[in-house]
Simulated scan of single mutants.
Amino acid sequence: MSPVAQRPRTVAYTMSRFPKLTETFILIEMLELERQGLRVEIFPLIRECANVQHADAQAMVERAHYCRLFSRPTLDAQIYWLMRRPAVYVRAWWRAIRGNLSSPKFLSRALVVVPKAAYAARRMVELDVDHLHAHYATHPALFAYVVNMLTGIPYSFTVHAHDLYVERPMLGEKIAAARFVVAISEFNRRMMIDLYGPIAEERVVVVHCGVDPALFRPRERTSRSDIFTIVCVASLAGYKGQRYLIDACARLRDQNVPFRCLLIGEGEDRPRLETQIRDLNLEGHVVLMGALPRHQVSEALQQVDVMALPSVVMPNGKMEGIPIALMEALAAEIPVVATAISGIPELVRDGETGLLVPERNAAALADALMR
């Protein structure tokens, strides 16, 4: 008699938005788990609708479990848990409300997350999910926390950057209830231990994000162009620090350096950066490329001399974790210039794998680019 084939272990994933162009690390993590033989079920909180997305995300989009708040399946799930586990269901609501009372923004989102988690909990039981992993310690981790309360399915979550540095609703409770917690840097792990003590020391492990080496490969050695080409791959947001890179570009121009600077990414700071480029008469040097899928980013890295990412710490504490864009550049053997904040020095060792400069210092950035 032939042995009965074992079913593959099933891991559910949740994140705020999917598919999100800037969160390739989640996509490649799920793809790798499937390559290793696990079954991945995806429960995004919101379906991201964007003009540009990664080609290999489409198959996952088609089978993701999207949930509309005002829908019959979501309503049915509330009734299901209220009938099956009324005390636990009410307790989940109470903890979510109590834990987010200090922030109107987080409270309003918790009122959406709990019913969606109730829907997902019922589906995960039907799908025989073995484990649930959430990316980000805010709303996705709350989602996992509620699913765990309702079903007992163990969960874990990855802590990245803003979800630790800015606001941390219920983070201690989420850590205590999790099977384990992933920090993307030693910097993040140390911060959580300082904040939450022995339970964080016991539960938090460091797993650095990765890149696809088949896509981000060492660039081919070709004859060098006379135009020094800088690239910055990042969303156009204040904490990414592109304004200081543009100021540094003005310094390079004033020193008669023949260069061009490509800003790959999109975001709310585009109008301000366009004005800055125009005011400094840099239209012929600095180009806003917009958002690009990762295969086009890989192609762009083959044509440049250096990656610059002048990240900064914002007044509210918002900052980088460890930028994947720097990892992709280093995988392509591109020299990098970055700022010495958060977990970046764990990746970029000054003078060895790149150059580190103080944040908000255009002069130091220009000097490092010249070097």
Rank of each mutant, 00 (worst) to 15 (best):
N188D: 13
R253E: 08
L132S: 07
V52G: 08
H208L: 05
E48S: 14
A120N: 06
I26V: 15
A368Q: 02
E352V: 15
T74V: 13
Y165Q: 08
A363D: 15
E202K: 10
G37W: 10
M15Y: 13
G351A: 10
R349F: 14
I175Y: 00
R47I: 00
G321I: 04
G37D: 11
R203Y: 03
S185V: 02
T10H: 10
A368W: 00
L195A: 15
S235N: 14
H285D: 06
P8G: 10
A50H: 12
A362N: 07
V204Q: 04
V257Q: 07
G210L: 04
L38C: 04
T229P: 03
E186P: 00
V112R: 05
R35G: 12
P335S: 12
M370A: 13
V114S: 07
L280E: 03
F157N: 03
L21F: 00
L38T: 02
L150S: 06
P258I: 05
L171R: 03
A144D: 01
G351N: 08
A331I: 01
V231F: 04
P86E: 11
I46P: 00
A340H: 09
V312P: 06
S342Y: 06
I334K: 02
L21I: 13
P218G: 07
L69Q: 11
A144N: 09
L292V: 04
Q302V: 05
P315F: 05
Q78D: 09
E201Y: 05
D56K: 11
R17W: 10
M60A: 11
H131W: 12
L171A: 02
E34P: 08
G172S: 03
A92R: 06
V147C: 14
A308E: 00
V114I: 08
R109E: 15
P358E: 11
A214P: 00
A96I: 11
G317D: 10
M170N: 00
R63H: 06
L369E: 04
D279Q: 14
Y119S: 00
N100T: 15
Q242T: 03
Q36C: 12
R109K: 15
H139C: 10
M289R: 13
A121D: 07
A340R: 15
G317M: 04
A234G: 02
T353Q: 10
G152W: 09
R122M: 14
Y165P: 01
R349H: 13
L45S: 08
F180Y: 14
T339H: 10
Y145K: 07
P169I: 03
P358M: 08
R189S: 09
Y13D: 02
V287C: 03
P345H: 11
Q303I: 02
E346K: 13
L292R: 10
M30N: 03
A368H: 05
S185K: 01
L21Y: 03
V206W: 02
R189G: 09
G172K: 01
V312S: 05
L27F: 02
N51W: 09
G290S: 09
R221D: 13
G238D: 14
A120L: 01
G172N: 12
L142G: 04
A178K: 04
P3E: 13
C209D: 01
K105M: 10
T229E: 08
P104I: 07
V40G: 08
G210T: 12
E34V: 00
S298D: 00
G99Q: 01
A5L: 15
D56A: 08
R217N: 07
N148P: 02
I153M: 10
E126T: 14
K20R: 13
